[in-house]
Design a protein around this nucleic acid. Sequence first.
RNA 1: AGUCUCGUAGCUCAGUUGGUUAGAGCACUACACUGAUAAUGUAGGGGUCCCCAGUUCAACUCUGGGCGGGACUACCA
Length: 1309
Amino acid sequence: MEYEYLFFLYLYLFKNTGLTDVSMSNKFQVYKQLDLAQINRDVLKRWEEDDTFHKSISTREGHPTFVFYEGPPSANGMPGIHHVMARAIKDTFCRYKTMKGFRVHRKAGWDTHGLPVELAVEKMLGITKDDIGKTISVAEYNAVCRTEVLKYTREWEALTRQMGYWVNMDDPYITYESRYMETVWWLLKQLYEKNLLYKGYSIQPFSPAAGTGLSSHELNQPGCYRDVKDTTAVAQFKVIRNEKSEFLYKNVDTDLYFLAWTTTPWTLPSNTALCVGPKITYVKVRSFNPYTGEPVTLILAKKLLAAHFDPKNESLALEDYSLGDKKIPYLVLAEYAGTELEGVDYEQLINWVKPKGDAFRVITGDFVTTEDGTGIVHIAPTFGADDDRVAKQNGIAPLIIDDLEGKRQPMVDRNGRFFLVENMDPAFVAEYVNLETYPEFAGRFVKNAYDETLAEDDATVDIDICVMLKRENKAFKVEKHIHSYPHCWRTDKPILYYPLDSWFIRTTAVKDKMIALNNTINWKPQSTGTGRFGNWLENLVDWNLSRSRFWGTPLPVWRTEDGLETKCIGSTEELMNEIDQAVAAGIMEKNIYQGFEVGNNSKENYEKIDLHRPFVDDIFLVSSTGKKMFRETDLIDVWFDAGAMPYAQMHFPFEAPSNSPQGGEHAPKYQTARISSYPLLKELAQKQKDNQTEAETYLWNNLRGKKLSNFKFRRQHIIDQFIADFVCLEKQLIIEVDGGYHSLPEVQISDTQRTEILISLGYKVIRFTNEQVLNEIDVVLGEIHRILDSLPLRGRAGDGASGIPFPADFIAEGVDQTRGWFFTLHAIATMIDESVAFKNIISNGLVLDKNGNKMSKRLGNAVDPFAAIDENGSDPLRWYMLTNSQPWDNLKFDMLGVDEVKRKFFGTLYNTYNFFAMYANIDGFMYAEDEIPVAERPEIDRWIISLLNSLVKEVGESYETYEPTRAGRAISDFVSENLSNWFVRLSRKRYWGGSYDADKLSAYQTLYTCLVTIAKLAAPIAPFFADLLYTDLNKITGKEADQSIHLADFPVCNESLINRDLEEKMALAQKASSMILGLRRKEKLKVRQPLARIMVPVLNKDFRQQFDSVKNIILSEVNVKEVEYLTDAAGIISKKIKANFKTLGPKYGKLMKQISGEIAGFSQQDISRLEKTGNYELNINGESILLSPEDVEIQTEDIPGWLVASEGNLTIALDIHLTGDLKLEGIAREFINKIQNIRKESDFEVTDRIVLRIQKHDFYNAAVEKYKDYISNQTLASELIMMDKVEDENSYLAEIDTDVTARIQVVRN
RNA sequence: AGUCUCGUAGCUCAGUUGGUUAGAGCACUACACUGAUAAUGUAGGGGUCCCCAGUUCAACUCUGGGCGGGACUACCA
């Protein structure tokens, strides 16, 4: 036993007796068991005491910012486990960016408006929408909404805290607050002024009986959809023969018609187009009209031919048909693709009212199916949402009537009747209405249910229209049909799809811009961006903003009753002024917001006003012509609230105005021109711009238009009192291009002064000569690029809204937000700023239960996030969720998976730490010694450090590209495979015993570095455990200044420490060891029994060298004494050869089968010829094929007479012959094993010294004698005494070999 | 119905520009190791790579068509 080691051992024992008081603080904390839930609580407490979150922001003051937007959750529902998922993703990247030195902006918020809130309130109060304004006032109702919506705020905050989601909750934005709504109004006004906000109509469910529109939610209430029997018609639309349709008339000897089916014949008079499917095949059929018997030729979908013509009748002769025959013959004449039919004109079916504009044309639509009907859809744009959309896209006019007030109306009025002629504009009637045919139907209800004088079985308008069509040879088939049709939940009467007034945002006007901007966004997964979101943009329609509800942001639009004058209000200031004017004009009695101070942005001030209904409804304004103006009663889509959050969370522009001198908290701080000298300088700058040198022009052309990594450069830009040649303001970098005269001394002095001043203003100045720019532009640009990268971002990139964090660098929400929040953010940012709202986005999948079902309270399969965190801590939950599957795939959440993560990753890491701590405490390692240069550390240390650096690189890249799953899995693999299973296992001996020498120190330093680095890499995903690990380590060593890992810097990969060769070698060692252990197992040879040698065939020089350098590791791992290399010359290696498909395939393609057959048939001579000469010629089908060594794979087959294992191209033979000496050593090791077990059973301390007494036995006497020192050393025995008889008392029987037991006594010294 | 997405071992997931015998972890079974010890290691069994067709010398991989799960968007003639 070395003295040095003894010394430390004594020190350790001494400390343990408590005789010294320096003890505890110098020891690494050792844990009895891993309790991640307790760690969660402890670390959380420390974070709160130390205010770590705020420190993680304040310590990054002045650093470049990383902007994250929190998609506001609604606090009127409890948080679920899926919120843990979403928030784990968000938190991971915000923490990562913090560790990368960014100042991360992440403001929490609450989404508070919308239907779910209204429904919850109604349920709670036991009322319906009908009661609002009757049994409860709107004001009371809204007051309840206000409290209801934040009902679960406390739970949400608790979840945020417990799961370690760091988001700034100091001042969350709340969408119902007046300040937030003011920004929303401001945005709407911007859109209004850009002519992007307009009033139009949309097709919505409408109840003529109740006289009101219905939301789709109201339609989905139980009992609303009912099966009803309606008259349906297949109508014949007559083709107009002209050059567009001429091709259809081939072989046609009758009139030609399109067939279209409808379940609502009353919409036929409003038909203005027919729609065919572009991918559907149509047929042209010669037949007869069943009602009139007239010969007709009809066009319908091929697939539906059998639905309208009995195939049995095809054989019938056309000539034999006479009117009244049940069997109607038919003949298919031709087939057409849907696209061919596009553009063909047809006659109006029912000529009551003429449309204004283009109509009666065949158009195409993807929504057309061949499920039922004829595969041709009758389009009445005023009565169907699809119809309206497809008509607009194709420029087809709807059938619209001008009423007496000059308003545009559909053919059916709001009572559900065909419009009365006397209610129409006479001028319109004169020009467009057919007074011969229409009056018979005018005033008829389109559904009998609307007319109290009619009964169920009275003739309906549908029937009368069909009768008319039959008579006119325009109806092909009329029949009753049962289908499900929606009814109004209040009146029980059928609803109509009906055009209703709505406010729209003209998103179609910016469609191209939105598509272009979307292409710059990094979507995770990409397919959501190009697919779901991209397609949505391609088929964009105008955004219908209107909602007829109560609890939401009111549309800030006032109109005069005649609709001729409109005002859109964009701020409280504007509103106050307008109200004051209205009061002055006598329209309002007083200003209801009196007391509100314009310009005072305090919360208190804004709480004085309420911009919700009903208060805003009571505001009437005065128009420029003195007329009274009423607010449009609509609320806006709550998605607009959410999409407005980049602006509204900052109360933009009211609190961070874009051009204000103070510029808001986040405004760029760069110094610009001095006011006094600006006019002069400006003139000068312009002159310089006009007279640029050749070099300047050349460089400018390489910098302009954000060519260089998207950095914006300006030329001849005035800064303070100077004109900088080129400047990048975001990075405060000035580039000067100098002509020859700069070498003059006086010019140099002034240059120096100028540079000094600019530097003092915070700029970096670099200079190039004209020659450099002209001759070495790549070098120059490379240098600029390098310097740009090294500089922090000062201002904000981009030209969007200034003064606020915009756009976001990163957002993440569920994929269900694609057409919700993601869209509204994108749309608003595009329209307001022509910018993206977010640069990187993760759209995460759903969290399902372990069987793949959606979680719901009803099924009882929902996981309570609080219980889950309480039991496991949030780290394993977070780790599991991010690493089990990629965030954008759905996660099948299974608690067993969480357990696995706990055991496999956290358990292993914890064990590794505990291992380290235990020995470090014994040896008093505190990382106080100088760092041993990596180059001087043993191979295994350099290996794990190499892998560690590779890991740092991979993990860094993964986080950087928003791939948390890859990052987490890489960390976990490293910990369990390489660190624990290989490095620690092989290095155990180095920690145990021996002196505190360089090797031991290296072992400690290396393991310490691995642990602390792993902690940092894992910190973004597992913030609690990582911080504990870090602080436990750092407390003792004081290596790092930061008190929390979340304030520390993310590790940087040191490429020079990565040694691929070494990594390969070690992989070889791992493989070889496992193969040899496999062989031992097969032969039942314990690893304790040393063996003499292994033999390895050498196929090439590199291999021998590689194997040799890890030989010792392998040998000690598998307890073998020597390795012997076998070369060809020995003649005992037999080789086998295979074709390398990867190299040969592309060259010889078709011949591969034969080639591989030939190669497989190579003899040993053939193989060695190829190896020696480096080529081999094959002849296949007369073609000469030249093989090189790369075209084949050569492996050794086996070594006759030896115990052999083969894997890939590595073959190892094991010599299992036991010499006497080996046997003795095996016995000695057996003793060590048994004695160690006895120590353990006796609960001895690791460091207790013992006295050993062993009863003699002929089988092992020699072995014990020979290895006495070795045994003593390993078991910490001060004495080893062989005795004839050891007393039974205090002794143990240990089996040393089959039938050989030893009596051993182990006594503490 | 449309769009997107997923489908590989009992479970959760990898699988590079197509290339030879499709992998890992968990679970299961067996074994080994023994001062990291309520830890660790090694091995084994287990596959119609959802199905069909095509392209190719060669398909888990590419193309087309189905089937099944999920999400979103529509609710229709």
